[in-house]
Amino acid sequence: MFKIPKGKEVPLGCVTPAPVGEQPMMITGNWREFRPLLEPEKCDLCMNCIVFCPDACFQLDDAEEKVVLNEKYCKGCNICINECAPGALTAAYELDFDDGVVRLDKPF
């Protein structure tokens, strides 16, 4: 009756394997208009970004002693920029990047 194009399949009831660190079927980074940019030399590892990010996009890299942004799931809410104590995060317009994800047909 219906024909689902190849690559567009969704599992029954959208039940997906768990636990997974990333959910490749549910990438939401292309909703973003602004990208948070981190200046590492200003970062004092206060970790406010890790605590406040609603999508858990910031993680602490213990070995390197730095915070890392997972851009695939950042929706560009800018909460991290507002909460960053040392002012190490700034908002950059997504289309200023060659690999800018917003409004592209195939972002990933």
């Binding site: 009831g13 636990p19 079927m25």
Partner: peptide
């Protein structure tokens, strides 16, 4: 372990609708 009720994208919503219609 599986996830029920995850966030999905708009292009996946149609397919979920089709599943119910089917």
């Amino acid at each position: 372990p599986v996830s029920h009720g995850p966030q999905i994208r708009p292009d996946q919503g149609t397919i979920m609708d089709i599943q119910r219609a089917q």
